[in-house]
Nucleic acid binder design. Sequence first.
DNA 1: TCAAAAGTGTTAGATTTACACCCATGA
DNA 2: TCATGGGTGTAAATCTAACACTTTTGA
Lengths: 225, 225
Amino acid sequence: MTTYYQEFQKVFLSVDCIIFGFEENKLKILIGKRNMDPGRGEWSLYGGFVRNDESLDEAANRTLFTLTGMRNIYMRQVGAFGSLDRDPGERVVSIAYCALINVNDYSEKLRKQHGVEWVDIEEIPTMYSDHNEMVRQARIIMQQKFKTSPVGFELLPNLFTLTQLQRLYEAVNGADLDKRNFRKRIKEMDFIEKTDLIDKTHSKRGAALYRFNKKMYNEDPNFKL
Amino acid sequence: MTTYYQEFQKVFLSVDCIIFGFEENKLKILIGKRNMDPGRGEWSLYGGFVRNDESLDEAANRTLFTLTGMRNIYMRQVGAFGSLDRDPGERVVSIAYCALINVNDYSEKLRKQHGVEWVDIEEIPTMYSDHNEMVRQARIIMQQKFKTSPVGFELLPNLFTLTQLQRLYEAVNGADLDKRNFRKRIKEMDFIEKTDLIDKTHSKRGAALYRFNKKMYNEDPNFKL
DNA sequence: TCAAAAGTGTTAGATTTACACCCATGA
DNA sequence: TCATGGGTGTAAATCTAACACTTTTGA
């Protein structure tokens, strides 16, 4: 450490995860009650400290893995949050990351162990510190991403119906979509493949199941919704 | 400090500024040669450490002020950069911010004092550490912003011609625009006001000078380009 | 008088939006 | 048999993109 550097204080760095899921036709995030001071008992995002031997991205992935046991999950940075008063104890600057996971892939046992639950994005309670602001920014970023990039499939099972996909997009942008116009657009995207399989769990007639063909998308990435 | 926190190392936090300007029909950024180790002599963004008593935004504004003497400048966070190897000495995590300034408002004297210069965004040299990546991300963010928000005026004098405005947009998105279509769109935006003044410095005939009416924009914010 | 930049409208094509009925099936 | 969700096409309106000539004036 040079003399120059000594003028400045070092700070703790944490990551906080905004983990999105799609359940009951609603966009939800995983939050829990803090079990440590400061802020014990308040609603909070799941987070953790950045270690000495890992990058920010690695810290975010490790934190997500700790909570969900899941790897290779879609994640991206939302931004750095560093108000002076954001942590009532010592100064902690936090880097917010958002993630998209398939709710079905997340073990209920693990979820309960960590005491987190899925909460409708439209009904987020007041949370600890600046966590509401983190969620607000994450949501805006995701709304943009959903329009131009096929990230929505991260929230769905491998096989999904067009109605499920439409409900997802409705939940994300907070407004209903026209069924025929929606399906017209889907048909234009060859990488959203119709399978021979039928889902009969949601209707008597049954709905065709589709899958997202990532390889085909990479050859001609022209997503637009 | 609690026992728990001690498991984690604190780190230095810095801010790095991507300062955009518009000059000679080109989008440029302010960079200089590093005058300290590590990386002495390499091209670099202008940055500084985050102090104990200031938020990240405040640190970015202070750093910009130190370099330019300018306050109340449009600034926004690009993101946090925290690879393990990004600083060859001690670990430093940096928060990148981008800013838009009017080149004419920046004193040449100050610029030279700090040894920074305006470099065409299309001709950025290889820079220290991850600074090229910071610029790349800042540029993408700005390209998005320019389409939906009247931030371009931050780079222009109060009074500007439509040709200047068009050249700015061409520089930002890296492609030429159709003059008639461009001007058609401008006319639809009442908050871009034509004045009685004529600029004769760039043509014999003279071009009408326009101004951005911020108050009018706030009453009906419908920017689209 | 001419070079150089300013200024101005129209049209074809593409995209977006609104809209209503039949189908298949299990209960 | 009927209630429920699945599935389909068209037409009007809007938006986008392509395109060329006249004006003014200082040198």
